[in-house]
Amino acid sequence: MKYMCLIYGDEAKHPQADTPEMGRLMQDYMAFTKDVQEKGVMVAGDPLEPVATATTVRVRGGKTETTDGPFAETKEQLGGYYILDCKDLDEAIAYAARIPTAAIGSIEVRPIMVFD
């Protein structure tokens, strides 16, 4: 089964660029990504630019409305994702718990819809 792990964290508490904390976080992410690649679990995964760069688009009455910012203001923001191919939810949970942001933010694990 394929699971999408949505990585949520508080951007305000996120380590700043060029700090030792950021260096460690990057290393942890590289190690995790390498591990899921080697195990053949990794389908896809990317970090996202901060919500300050987000644009929300809606089409209402045939007209496109474009607004600055994320679709909802929340305490923790979507910062990236992995798509992992796992045996079952327990395996997905075990991997999600090892995503570095799990220790400070939250990982939402969602099965990818299968059409049969």
Binding site: D88, D90, A92, A94
Partner: peptide, 14 residues
């Protein structure tokens, strides 16, 4: 069914 909750006795670490 859809989330794939396993039908297994959990692994030792769980």
């Amino acid at each position: 069914k859809t989330a794939g909750i396993p039908y297994e006795v959990p692994e030792p670490e769980l």
